[in-house]
């Protein structure tokens, strides 16, 4: 379980998150939802220790995040960020292989290579594995970065808007992978914009607004007309189609 206690974060002096206390269940898929600028990405980055909280604590299985040495943390927690720039001119396989760095420190074993290939296959990248990233489309690049995160094989996986740039088929593929990872016992936390997707795949939902937690609970409770209408300050209806909840704003 990942728990935050009265977490506050400021970005260049301005408070962005205030008094965040949530409990994200282990081995479940948690969706972070909310309007633009609610602080979802900031919360995710802070959980990934890429941002330093101004106050408050983050506990992973009861252990203070600050007490985990960086190398050990890299084996426990991986994060997909929104910032797309990769930098060096690498092939897809190179990039995904760097996801194994915390395990192999650059000397890939046969098992590492197998893991890399599996991540490439799962993201449907086999046809592009030896292409350079700068020759790929935005969606293909996004999938390569998700594959890198998967190859890291950590117990906690943080994904910031993983569906960015993805077409419908690949968006579904990525959400199914996230679901499989959670079912395999990993704690998956995903920032999502599409509430229908959140309703279909998430076990647990944290709704954020203006840097605070507006609602938190099982997805059935949070993905409701009442909560969502209040969250987005606009009329939202939740319909049931084929046994699934669909969120509509018409």
């Amino acid at each position: 379980m990942i728990e935050t206690r009265a977490l506050s974060v400021a970005l260049s002096g301005k408070p962005v998150l205030a008094d965040i206390s949530v409990a994200l269940p282990k081995g479940r898929l948690t969706a972070l939802v909310g309007p633009n600028g609610a602080g979802k990405s900031t919360l995710l980055m802070t959980l990934g220790r890429l941002l330093e909280p101004a106050s408050g604590d983050i506990l992973i299985d009861g252990r203070d995040l600050r007490a985990v040495p960086p190398r050990e943390l890299a084996l426990q927690l991986s994060i997909l960020r929104q910032e797309g720039a990769i930098g060096p001119r690498l092939t897809v396989r190179d990039l995904v292989s760097f996801g194994r760095y915390p395990h192999s420190h650059g000397r890939l074993t046969a098992a590492d290579r197998l893991e890399v290939q599996r991540a490439i296959d799962r993201l449907d990248l086999a046809g592009f594995a030896d292409r350079y990233l700068d020759t790929l489309s935005g969606g293909q690049k996004q999938r390569a970065q998700i594959a890198m995160v998967l190859a890291q094989q950590t117990d906690v996986i943080l994904l910031d808007e993983p569906l960015n740039n993805l077409d419908l088929a690949h968006a579904r593929r990525v959400m199914r992978i996230a679901r499989e990872e959670a079912d395999a016992g990993r704690t998956v936390i995903v920032v999502l914009h599409d509430l229908t997707v959140a309703a279909a795949y998430a076990d647990h939902v944290v709704a954020m607004k203006a840097g605070r937690v507006a609602a938190e609970g099982p997805s059935e409770e949070v993905i409701s007309e009442e909560v969502l209408s209040r969250l987005f300050e606009t009329d939202v209806s939740v319909a049931e189609v084929g046994g699934r909840r669909v969120v509509l704003t018409l």
Partner: peptide, 11 residues
């Protein structure tokens, strides 16, 4: 070369 955040993510 992939940046500070990626470096830290990889430990």
């Amino acid at each position: 070369g992939m940046g500070e955040d990626t470096s830290r993510t990889l430990g």
